[in-house]
């Protein structure tokens, strides 16, 4: 058996389209997951006790079960409760919930990392709760949580591979299909790994850039 990437050239348009789908689902899952995770963290930190407990239980369930199982339940179990989704919406929804659980934990630690005195100082000069969150808490916690957020976002990209089991035409599914058709498994998987790696590198560099930007404001040395 030879290692021949030449055949891939014929399939390149499909692969690029699949990579686009992966990127789109990843971006949507990360963005919505971060937004939802922020709301969950807010609810657990500042919400009434019953809400905080309920959110805590949901987060534990999402963190305590494999993403694969969650997706199966959502896609194949959803119709039993009237939730019939196409593969891509189901994938985005599943990824969003999964991401929100982890993001919320990171953000919760970020909230706790902002010294209480900084929040008291804001209250003393008349800030409302929301003004305090927007002007004081979010910028201060950004520097604390940025590395963990980038890490989670990278993991999330690789979790999109799991969406292939609910027939989302993303990179892993399309590339494996090409592999099985042409019996060029090694080449296909090599290409697959290369794609993920390039995207992770780009994400990692964006994250480092963000960290440097934050560091320049003098936030790091507290």
């Amino acid at each position: 058996m030879t290692f021949d990437l030449g055949f891939i050239a014929q399939h390149l348009p499909e692969v690029i389209e699949a990579a686009g789908t992966t990127l789109m689902i990843w971006a949507a899952g990360a963005f919505c997951g971060l937004a939802l995770g922020f709301l969950v963290a807010l609810g657990r930190r500042y919400g009434p006790a019953p809400l905080a407990v309920l959110l805590g239980v949901i987060v534990e369930l999402l963190r305590g079960t494999p993403f694969l199982v969650q997706l199966f339940l959502l896609y194949f179990g959803g119709p039993f409760i009237g939730l019939s989704l196409d593969p891509i919406p189901a994938g985005v929804l599943g990824l969003t919930c999964y991401a929100a659980a982890y993001y919320s934990e990171i953000l919760r630690a970020g909230f706790d990392g902002v010294p209480a005195g900084h929040v008291e100082a804001a209250a003393c000069v008349g800030f409302s709760g929301w003004q305090t969150i927007r002007r004081i808490i979010l910028p201060e916690m950004a520097v604390l949580v940025m590395p963990a957020l980038v890490n989670m976002t990278i993991l999330l990209l690789k979790e999109t591979a799991v969406l292939s089991i609910i027939t989302v035409p993303e990179l892993t599914m399309v590339t494996s299909a090409i592999g099985s058709e042409s019996y060029a498994f090694v080449e296909a998987l090599f290409l697959l790994a290369l794609f993920y790696w390039v995207m992770v590198e780009i994400c990692g560099h964006l994250g480092r850039f963000a960290e440097l930007r934050l560091a320049r404001t003098g936030l790091v040395a507290r």
Binding site: P115, H118, E120, A121, R135, P139, L219
Partner: peptide, 23 residues
């Protein structure tokens, strides 16, 4: 406060002017 509680992500001027702008 005893521990100043300045906001670390704002300059001295930013700390003093922040509430004037926001509040």
């Amino acid at each position: 406060f005893q521990h100043f509680n300045l906001w670390p992500h704002m300059t001295a001027l930013g700390n003093v002017s922040e509430a004037l702008k926001t509040v």
